[in-house]
Design a protein around this nucleic acid. Structure first.
Lengths: 227, 227
DNA sequence: CACTGTGAAATTCTTCACAGCG
DNA sequence: CGCTGTGAAGAATTTCACAGTG
């Protein structure tokens, strides 16, 4: 019961660590050996002080007066995020979005490996996407068991997302990213991250509209004549 | 200079309003006429009190003791989000992801209309996705001008995202959703929303890893023998 | 001396409890 | 009586300023 140090990493920080990891991978491929918080922050689109605070949750990992060693920091981040060794995932629903995700080479280099691509449409089965053949969705339980998969990505139509989710959970999956526009119901102990691709567009539409607002009455429900 | 009421809507709320709008659209199609905060909240995956608070930024819009009128609330949300009338957008980069977004019927029903689908690959030009023909990326400035587009979606490879962005901004676009894994640099007055599809997966990997942690030493850098 | 690491302040966001109305 | 609307408490997150170190 004695926790030596409650160095809990805030979730907002975890999300940014993933971005830093991507940037660092790019720098490493470019042969860079060190980088300052300012440069890394601007490449990641965040402010430098925030970046340093984020990294501080991993304990000291830079060199004062110099910056951060690119390969060392990269490894540290990968370990912290749990992707030091490739993690096996399944992806259910090989529509446009599923294919896009499966074909995205970035995942491989970031510690994820799709060991199963599943689809209910027999016409799609056998198709090879990103080096892996699509299998029938009936193989779900087998694939999960074979590879000890704990992470799944759901890109099915909304109407079947919940039943796919139920099967995944029953098969032993404990972490799910859901792109279908429905809120999934899962038992305690299972994590679901809901991603809605259109939300960002709507936020943008809102901000865009705000820009055009310079002189507008308080009322939205009624327009009244001006004096 | 006299603001009548600083009823500013927090950004986190705006993002959720977009989700409520989607749920309400589903309810409306199902013929529902009213809904309570509890039901709406569970369908949206949030807590009821938070939902009520979110809606309160739009001013009172429910009936006490009953709930919310579905069509009225839907209209109110659409207006608040700036999608009461369909907004014209361009999408640049018709790879897998671009095609997925362009083909997603949800956008049409949620107030967005892609008036231009652009790609640099001549092989893709002419292809019809979601009812719109793909045009060469050279038409970018023309399409933006023709339709007075202010919102753009970038789904190009990372290496060309910045130059595409520059052209969009020069053509008059003020709001951009960027799916390419680079931080775009834009002048003041232009909004960029960065979306990284792999971040959610990485956050999940982190949480998944945490679950397995029950007895672990403080040190990450060294493994020591146990007594 | 430049740049990291970090407490402390400021801000934003979430949750709670209950007043208020149909 | 049931469910909305909301101030106020609480938690999380961001920002700041500066001490500390190679």
């Amino acid at each position: 019961m004695s926790e030596p140090r409650a160095r809990v990493i805030p979730e907002a920080t975890v999300a940014r660590l993933a971005v830093y990891l991507r940037v660092l991978t790019g720098l490493a491929e470019g042969g860079r050996s060190s980088v300052s918080s300012g440069e890394l922050a601007s490449a990641a689109g965040v402010n430098p002080a925030g970046l340093r605070k984020d990294l501080s949750y991993l304990g000291p990992c830079g060199v004062r007066g110099v910056g951060y060693a690119v390969p060392a920091l990269r490894e540290r981040l990968a370990r912290a995020l749990g992707v030091e060794e490739a993690r096996s995932c399944v992806l259910v629903g090989m529509g446009n979005l599923g294919s896009a995700l499966a074909g995205y080479a970035g995942f491989g280099s970031r510690g994820f490996s799709f060991v199963g691509l599943l689809d209910a449409d027999p016409a799609r089965v056998g198709e090879v996407v990103g080096g892996t053949a699509v299998r029938p969705v009936d193989d779900l339980e087998d694939v999960v068991a074979e590879h000890g998969v704990t992470i799944a990505v759901v890109t099915t139509p909304a109407v079947v997302a919940q039943q796919v989710c139920d099967r995944l959970v029953a098969a032993g999956v404990r972490s799910i990213v859901n792109f279908a526009p429905v809120a999934l119901v899962v038992p305690a102990g299972v994590d679901v991250r809901q991603v809605d691709l259109s939300v960002e567009l709507q936020v943008l539409a809102f901000l865009d509209q705000q820009k055009g607002v310079h002189l507008v009455a308080d009322r939205e429900t009624e327009q009244v004549a001006l004096p």
